[in-house]
Design a protein around this nucleic acid. Structure first.
Length: 477
RNA sequence: GGCCCCUUCGUCUAGUGGUCCAGGACGUCAGGUUCUCAUCCUGAAGAUCGCGGGUUCGACUCCCGCAGGGGUCACCA
């Protein structure tokens, strides 16, 4: 373990998409590798043919790439210690399995699945944990590949260090004769990952909490295989909305790619997921990718699970959007404008964007925020009839004020400054409060319940559109 | 049921014996910023630190017990 180059891995099974819980394991492994200047490896654990989902591999790869979690070795790009797909490594497992058989540390399981199930049921009715080794056969048949190969365990207590959980321990009662190679010839996760991590020279195993209970079995296997084990770091689960059970696809956990499609920035997702259970000990709330690489440490990862809070994600993304230079921001919004906006110039859209930048939380809400900049909305009487100042006025008064507004605006060059000063002097000549006068003009020109500041909005809308909409409103009053 | 892990404001968290009758952030509420929405600023409410015992001059911090929650006990990962 002395000064080996750091190599971490993310080893999903291609059974579906990645939600925030899954991506976090990947993120932390990636951070550990990048921080140490080591390698981050992707490995597909496809030893369960039944659960495999078509297209999942591409989807997983896309998810990692979209978030910028680049890997140095993997199924699609290869590497010196491949292949990186378990189904292509069957001979490796075979070799190690034979070694165990030869050493008397593995044996063929002679029972039928039904018989094993009966043992299991028996244990369950007795409310006892199921241990296969209680049924370990006296004279097992030779292993010919048609029966599962089981590990002949050596039950003993263990204590070990976990980079996140601290010092853990267990008794001999949790050690069992688990299956190494299934009757279909594929290895189990329990066996395959140990072999692969060793052969791929992995230095840190970073995985979810569900593996903590089987860790002693792995420790036992490392001994039988006579290989050194990597460092272990067990991540707490991210909890679903109920705050109890771990986040799962069944409960509607979203695909991380969906967040990207909704218009959340990859940087936000990275920062948000990292700080869900990790902080650097200061009061910093948002971290850039570079800061995370620099400051992350497994030792400061929370031991308890954390609930996923979308409100916080929304806030964080809003902060990032507001900080972003307009040009960069515009690049990111390319796919999110409404259809009608396609006819508008980049320059016009940039102006619109700068007006909504501070109220944008994610790009998916761009159309609803900017709709009136691109289309004339129908006159909506409800807007002034429910307005708490305007509803007290007669339509004739509104009409009169709007006509005066139209007159002064018509003479404007439509620069923001000129519009501002004209609107201000109109306030004086009419003796009206902004709440009344500005609201009338704003409603007339946008027909929207909310919009950016009036002068800015008029300036971007332009003279022609502004006057046309005022006329439409006048006609409706 | 056995074993293992976890437990600070609604949420994410700071906190490693005294500086904590517990700090920050999100959210909420109130006020301010020439109209709306948002931003920004200010302020407020919000955790007897799961409970009960110890140890100590002193405990959120150490020890013991309990409770609650979670994980696991597959030829799934």
């Amino acid at each position: 373990m002395e000064n080996k180059p750091v190599r971490t891995r993310f080893a999903p099974s291609p059974t579906g998409y990645l939600h925030v819980g899954g991506i976090r394991t990947a993120l932390f492994a990636w951070l550990v590798a990048r921080q140490a200047g080591g390698k981050f490896i992707l490995r597909f654990e496809d030893t369960d043919k039944k659960r495999e989902v078509a297209g999942a591999r591409e989807h997983l790869i896309l998810s990692l790439k979209s978030l910028g979690l680049t890997y140095d070795e993997g199924p699609d790009i290869g590497g010196p210690l491949g292949p990186y797909t378990q189904s292509e490594r069957l001979t490796h497992y075979q070799t190690w399995a034979e070694k165990l058989v030869a050493a008397g540390r593995a044996y063929a399981d002679p029972y039928t699945p039904e018989e094993v199930e009966a043992f299991r049921q028996e244990a369950r009715t007795k409310k006892q944990p199921f241990l296969f080794r209680n049924h370990r056969p006296e004279n097992p048949p030779a292993w010919d590949g048609t029966k599962p190969l089981r590990f002949k365990s050596d039950p003993k207590p263990y204590q070990w260090h976990d980079e996140v959980m601290g010092d853990l321990h267990s008794g001999p009662e949790v050690i069992d004769d688990f299956v190494l190679i299934k009757s279909d010839g594929y290895p189990t996760y329990n066996f395959a990952h140990v072999v692969d991590d060793y052969e791929m020279e992995i230095t840190h195993i970073i995985r979810g909490q569900e593996f903590i209970a089987s860790q002693p079995n792995y420790l036992n296997l490392y001994e039988a295989l006579e290989i050194e084990r990597p460092l272990i770091a067990t991540m707490p689960h991210i909890l679903g909305p109920d705050g109890k059970k771990k986040l799962s696809k069944r409960d509607g956990a979203k695909d991380v790619l969906d967040y990207l499609r909704d218009g959340f920035l990859p940087e936000t997702l990275i920062s948000f997921i990292a700080t869900l259970g990790w902080n650097d000990g200061t009061e910093q709330e948002i971290f850039s990718r570079e800061e995370l690489i620099e400051k992350f440490s497994l030792g400061r990862v929370q031991k308890s699970g954390a609930k996923f809070d979308e409100q916080r994600l929304l806030w964080m993304n809003g902060v990032r959007i507001r900080e972003m230079p307009l040009g960069d921001l515009y690049e990111h919004t390319k796919d999110f404008w409404q259809e009608e906006a396609e006819q508008s110039s980049d320059d016009y859209k940039k102006q619109v964007l700068s007006l909504v930048q501070e109220r944008l939380k994610y790009f998916g809400e761009l159309p609803q925020l900017t709709q009136f900049f691109f289309t004339d909305l129908p006159v909506n009487p409800e807007l002034w009839q429910t307005h708490k100042q305007l509803k007290k006025l007669e339509p004739s008064e509104i009409k009169s004020l709007l006509e005066q507004a139209k007159a002064t605006i018509a003479d404007s060059d439509f620069s923001t400054d000129d519009l501002t000063s004209r609107l201000n002097s109109l306030l004086e000549t009419t003796g009206q409060k902004p709440a009344v006068l500005f609201s009338i003009i704003r409603i007339a020109t946008t027909q929207a319940p909310a919009s950016p500041g009036l002068a800015d909005t008029l300036h971007v809308l332009g003279k022609e559109t502004s006057l046309r909409r005022i006329d439409a409103m006048l006609a409706a009053l």
